[in-house]
Design a protein around this nucleic acid. Structure first.
Lengths: 166, 166
DNA sequence: CGTGAAACCGTCGCCCC
DNA sequence: GGGGCGACGGTTTCACG
């Protein structure tokens, strides 16, 4: 399994930075039990190895005026690889689409979208998404309310698994 | 609409910190065109007003050994508010469930889950989720591959909207 | 991995508009 | 009200052991 090249200190660093990405390096070093310079070296190594893809402020979309969140299930006409890639590329270009994942089962993609209001979303839905090449069906579900939105990965599960396998 | 109390500098700050949450304050100040002290004051104000909920490192779940991502659609038996809240509370306690959103339409909730492997997920699915109180139906879809995962909010859309309304 | 030093940054008080 | 200047203390980030 992956992640085996990381020692417990590296995993603690990742967990701490996932919880608070703006933590100072000295605070981080104190929490993981080493001094600042090697701690910073580990962080840089984790970044370059791709374990850390970036750091992002978590902005409140509703407070900013994005009052609509929608999940869209998309079925395509053709599932040939070139056509799948073409659809994915289009999703990357649509700013209202924040996430796009290819699924197994009866539906081909799930999209998470945000919009300032319903009419903006419906314009996008009818003019862009539904009428895009190769799109066969779109089913949308409005988010009534959010109940949980945890960042990233449950490190507790990883630790439990590693200690069980050891 | 919300977000009207933010001037263009505040919005630029949010956009920059969403793109790079570890940017130093002097770099941020340079990019938004003011000096460091007022820039830091604005950031603190945005944090306290709830526009910024936190900062998180974006860790690569697959590289860390979480090779399975699943969307689960959950239908409940009772949609009374107390029962909805009880289910949401349970989702908050399950570490494999990273997101839980209440939806309109035929399904009540959509859950985004991660797990180290399929058997871990299936154990969770059968022993925890499907057999939880008040759960009527669960349909799961495995993520074959991720095509887009943009953080937060499309500020371009916000700016376009504000300039159109002005 | 730790120590020490130098450059940089976050932060405050004060002044300005 | 918000923005800029200067200075102090803490932090980042070297080179070296």
């Amino acid at each position: 399994m992956a992640g085996h090249r990381l020692d417990p200190i590296d995993r603690k660093i990742l967990a701490e930075l996932q919880a608070d990405g703006r933590m100072t390096n000295v605070e981080l070093a104190k929490r993981v039990g080493i001094s600042a310079p090697p701690c910073l070296r580990r962080v840089r190594t984790l970044e370059e190895a791709g374990y850390i893809r970036g750091y992002h402020a978590d902005v409140d979309s509703r407070e900013l005026g994005f009052e609509v969140q929608v999940f869209a299930m998309v079925g395509l006409v053709s599932q040939a690889e070139a056509d799948l890639s073409a659809f994915e590329e289009r999703c990357r270009e649509w700013p209202l689409v924040r996430e796009c994942h290819m699924l197994n089962g009866e539906v081909d993609f799930i999209l998470k979208c945000v919009a300032p209001d319903l009419s903006t979303f419906q314009t996008f839905l009818t003019e862009d998404l539904t009428s895009a090449d190769n799109v066969a069906s779109v089913k949308t579900s409005l988010v009534i309310r959010g109940a949980k939105d945890a960042p990233g990965v449950p490190f507790e599960v990883l630790e439990e698994r590693l200690s069980r396998d050891a």
